[in-house]
Amino acid sequence: MQAFDQIQELWQKHEVEVKVSADEMLQQAKKEVNGLKLKSALNILGMLASFIAIAALWIFFHFESWTTHVGISITIIAIGVYTLILYRDYRLISKTDFTAHPHEYLNNLKTYQLNRYKLYNSLYWFYVIALSLGIIFYFVEILAHFNTVQKVLAVGLTALWMLFCSTILRKAVISREKERISLLIEKFERISAQISTPE
Rank of each mutant, 00 (worst) to 15 (best):
F139A: 14
Y112D: 04
L131P: 01
T148S: 14
W66M: 09
A159W: 00
K19T: 01
A78K: 01
L36W: 05
V70A: 15
F61V: 15
G80C: 07
L109D: 00
A56Q: 09
L119G: 07
I85T: 11
K118A: 08
N107G: 02
Q8D: 11
V128W: 02
E9M: 03
L183V: 09
N115Y: 02
L131M: 13
Y87W: 09
F164Y: 13
L114G: 04
S175D: 15
S122Q: 11
E9S: 12
L86K: 04
W125Y: 15
A3T: 08
K13H: 12
Y105W: 04
F146K: 15
T99M: 11
I54R: 00
L106I: 00
L57C: 09
T67V: 00
M25L: 15
M162P: 07
Q28W: 03
F139K: 02
I191T: 06
C165H: 08
E17H: 09
T68Q: 07
L10F: 04
V20F: 05
Y82E: 13
L45T: 07
T167I: 13
Y124Q: 10
I44P: 02
Q2L: 14
N115P: 03
I74S: 04
A144I: 05
A3L: 15
S166E: 01
K13E: 15
F51I: 06
I72M: 14
G71E: 13
Y112P: 00
L157S: 11
E189N: 07
R190S: 03
I136H: 03
R170W: 00
G134H: 03
H101N: 12
T158D: 08
M47V: 05
Y90H: 08
L169T: 13
I59S: 12
F98T: 01
T167Q: 10
L57V: 08
Q194I: 12
E199H: 07
L86F: 06
